[in-house]
Each structure stands twice: as C-alpha cells, then as structure tokens.
Design a protein around this nucleic acid. Structure first.
Lengths: 163, 163
DNA sequence: AATGGATCGTCTGTTTCAGACTATTGAGGA
DNA sequence: TCCTCAATAGTCTGAAACAGACGATCCATT
C-alpha cells in the first residue's frame, strides 16, 4: 500500500485503502496505525517524522521493505479465495424460512449488488483516462466481475421464486 | 446449521459445515464446540446427553431457537459481501512486481479456480437426484458462479499479459 | 497386542475487529 | 474576533475470531 503512492501517513493510507482494497476486504482503521509501527521495528518502513509537533507520522518503505514485498509477490499463493456473505448463509436455511423472506432477501441483494456495481463503474470511468493508474484498476475489474456474478445469481433466484 | 439435519453433535456439524459453508467461509472447528454451549445457555439449543460416558454431546434446536433463527432469516441483511483474496491483494502491487511473477500468479489462480469449480460441479452431480436436498444446493450455485467469474478474470488477465 | 484412522473434544495464545474516545487543525460564518 | 464544524490524526479497550497443538476414545485390521 505504501510503496504505490510514495511516503504516506496512516491517515492517507486509511483513505487510500478505503476506496480500493477496503471495498471488498474491509478492516478497522486502527490497524493502519499499529501495523506501520510494527513494520518500522522490522526495518521494513522508515519514519519521516515531520511538522505538527510530533503528531502525524509519515512512513516510507525501506529498501529492505521493498525487497520483502517483492519476495512476497513472487511467493506462491496458497490461500483460497474466501467469500463472506451473510446473504449466502441465510440461503443455507432457505428451507426453514418464509418464502416471503427469501424473496425479500433476493430483492435486497439485487439492489445492493446493483449499487455496488454502479460505484465500481463510476470509479473505472473516473480513472479511465488517467495515465499510470491503469494497472491499479485491474483488481477493480475482478471485484466488478464478482459483483456481476452475484447480481446475476440473485436475479435468477428471484425470478425462480417469484409467483 | 443444526436444524437442517436434525439433532447433531459438534463433530457432525464440523463435517457438515466442512463441505458446505466451510468451502467459502472457513472457520476453526473449535468454535463448533464452544458455540453450541453458548447457545444452550441462551436457551436456543438443548443438550440430549447420551452414551459414551458423558463425551459426545448431541444438540437439538429448541422452539425458541427455531423462532430466533426464523427471525434472523427475516431481518434485513445489511452486511456487504466480503471477498478475501490474497491473489487480488497481490494484484494491487502489480506495478512493483516482476511481470513474470504476476503471470505465474495468474496461472496458479487459473489452476486453483478450475479445481475448485470441478469440486463444486462434482457436488452438484452427486446430489442432483437426491430429493429434498435441492434447496440445499442453491448456495452452491452462487459459489460456483463466483468461482467461474474469478476464473474468467484470471484467464483474461493471463492472456493480456502473455507475450 | 499393536497400529492407525476416524471420532470427539479442550486449551492456549495471538490477531482481528468494532467502535468509542481524544485531540488538533483549518476554513468559513456570526 | 470568536465559534463551530468538518476533516485530520491517533489511542484505547474489550470482545470475537482464529490457528493449531494437544489429549482422549473407539473401532476395525493386521
């Protein structure tokens, strides 16, 4: 996260993460403050303490940090994709639920996924022309694909279960 | 989870969960032992202590538990779908990585998603004819759709970044 | 009798997480 | 000028989630 935009403060990271990774993999901002500290101790980040009488720490990645990062990028990825979706969880109990409830669930999911897709498409548009950002948009495309797949599923489900 | 199959032990749940929800939303089995206890205290489950000299607790859902469950199923679902995928995370740093590494990442992802899809399709086939299980297969379909979307993405990505 | 696999369950320590809480800064209006 | 409010910057706490080692037991084979 750090390296991509040059030196950053935790707050800046928080914002950057907020509308990128954070969209599909949210995590509490407090970690954006505690993690850098850990990484500094490991020698992977440096602090460029500045202005404002000690508040506002700016971090840069060190050479070592960068090579660690690249190492990680080159490692095989064994973890499976995880999907956490309480809607899907509810689906597991479909038999027990009111048909009405499941239908409402589907409708709501359709709404939410449509909305999310709209947001993603907005982002794509906004950054479409900007040079250099192109590669950063790649993960967004995956997110979009997944959202669309989910949307399609719920639309079908709704159709099947409608009167 | 409990209600769908009638009274169960934690171990049975562990297995059942293992090849259903657990596929896309894994969690440690220890919770399958601690949670029921909590739910018993809340009056949502009953213990049918049996045989084996006190080991092996069998749980049933109570009337109250069932109505709580139904209540939950009827509640609006506000949580967004979460996707945790370290491959996608790595993609965010694509600029910094070796092109080679990203290509290998893509290839590996293609492999993994194909394999996962195969497993899901197997499951679908196996339970295709079995009566009563039909509705239980619904969430699987969503999982399958998502996997296919991911696969498609990585295939495209690989194509774009090859030679 | 010994092995080993499936069953059954506990325990420990670490991470993650949600979200409340505190401060500071800077811009704009009364 | 002073006030207020939003944005910025960061800490803290307690609760859940998590990984994974560990301890038992049962049962079928060798």
């Amino acid at each position: 996260m750090v390296a991509m935009r040059g030196p950053s403060t935790s707050y800046e990271l928080k914002r950057a993460v907020g509308h990128s990774v954070g969209y599909f993999w949210p995590f509490p901002h407090a970690q954006l403050y505690s993690e850098p500290k850990r990484l500094v101790e490991l020698g992977l980040l440096d602090v460029i303490a500045e202005e404002h009488g000690r508040r506002k720490q700016t971090y840069t990645i060190t050479e070592e940090g960068l090579s660690e990062l690249r190492l990680w990028l080159g490692e095989p990825t064994t973890e499976q994709l995880q999907v956490r979706d309480v809607a899907e969880l509810k689906l597991f109990f479909g038999e027990l639920a009111d048909a009405k409830d499941m239908l409402e669930l589907a409708r709501e999911q359709v709404r939410q996924h449509q909305q999310r897709i709209a947001v993603y498409e907005q982002m794509q548009l906004r950054f479409a022309g900007v040079p250099g950002v192109a590669t950063r948009m790649v993960p967004l495309r995956l997110g979009l694909q997944l959202e669309r797949a989910a949307l399609q599923f719920w639309v079908e489900f709704e159709a099947e279960n409608t009167g």
